[in-house]
């Protein structure tokens, strides 16, 4: 079974400059290949040119003074094995990463590829957006590092027609930050039906700042700005968490698809918010 019938050219650039040049030349029929899972699982007959990043040595995890740089072609397994972000402000990110897909696919899914595809069911995007990751874009001669939130707010698919993702950058937060994530799946290896990541900055037991991201809504991951604003300045107490869970259920932007109804998704979102915030309460 020939999956990619239209492909007639494969390139293995040695530099980012070369990769970007090949990408620009190929226009809409060219694809940058990181792990290669997406294009093999969902073949696009219009693709003629594949540009493999194998020789760019972008599979690395570098830690420096609380800053973690993850090379674009680093796989989920490589990230887990690096141990660099297994615990993020007390939360086991390793557990989230290990619950994504299966070992075989975690050995292939790359962090940069997940960010570039921004698939609606991506746990990686929700996770990275919630912990305020930044993305380093390179067009060969120029590099720019921007927050993931800004990257997705712009026309990132257009950006990726003339540049590539080089790195994802995380900054470990201070002790006043708490992070938690929840995901709902029907079975261990399935894509999520809903996921949510919450990062809060506390001042004593009061929320100073918050980032809330929901994915698999079933649309692409989205920042829940109303919820972030609602939490700011509020005390993290059992009563307030209950009220916030109801607020989430009423205001979260979710929808119905073949797998789950809007109402059920909204209810789960409220439960997730309650679970995550309650876990912070135990640490306050």
């Amino acid at each position: 079974m020939l999956k990619l019938k239209g492909v007639s050219e494969c390139f293995y650039p040695e530099t980012i400059e070369e990769a970007v040049k090949l990408l620009k030349e190929g226009k809409d029929s060219a694809r940058i290949i990181g792990g290669g899972l997406h294009i093999a699982a969902f073949p696009n007959p219009l693709i003629r040119r594949l540009i493999f990043l194998n020789n760019l040595h972008l599979n690395y995890v570098k830690e420096n003074e609380g800053r973690v740089a993850i090379g674009a072609t680093t796989t989920i397994s490589e990230l887990i094995n690096s141990g660099a972000i297994n615990y993020y402000n007390g939360y086991s990110i390793k557990k989230v990463l290990q619950s994504i897909a299966t070992e075989l696919l975690r050995n292939q899914i790359t962090i940069g590829g997940s960010v570039a595809q921004n698939e609606p069911y991506s746990d990686i995007v929700t996770l990275l957006a919630a912990i305020r990751a930044r993305v380093l874009i390179s067009s060969g001669d120029r590099e720019s590092e921007i927050p993931l939130k800004e990257f997705y707010a712009g026309n990132f698919r257009e950006t990726l027609k003339h540049s590539i993702i080089k790195e994802i950058v995380l900054e470990k937060k201070g002790e006043d930050f708490r992070f938690g994530m929840e995901r709902f799946v029907k079975n261990a290896t399935e894509i999520p039906l809903l996921n949510m990541g919450i990062l809060v900055q506390l001042s004593g037991d009061t929320v100073k700042d918050a980032t809330i991201v929901t994915g698999a809504r079933p649309g692409e991951a989205e920042f829940f700005t109303e919820g972030e604003e609602y939490l700011k300045g509020r005390q993290l107490s059992e009563k307030n968490i209950e009220i916030f869970a109801d607020f989430v259920e009423e205001n979260i932007n979710v929808d119905t698809d073949i797998r789950l109804s809007k109402e059920y998704r909204a209810h789960i979102a409220g439960v997730f918010a309650k679970r995550i915030l309650t876990s912070f309460l135990r640490e306050v």
């Binding site: 093999a40 493999f52 397994s77 070992e103």
Partner: peptide, 15 residues
């Protein structure tokens, strides 16, 4: 040495 699903691995990628 790493387990991979060969059905979604392009041969050209592992040359």
């Amino acid at each position: 040495g790493i387990p991979r699903a060969s059905c979604v691995t392009l041969a050209a990628q592992v040359v």
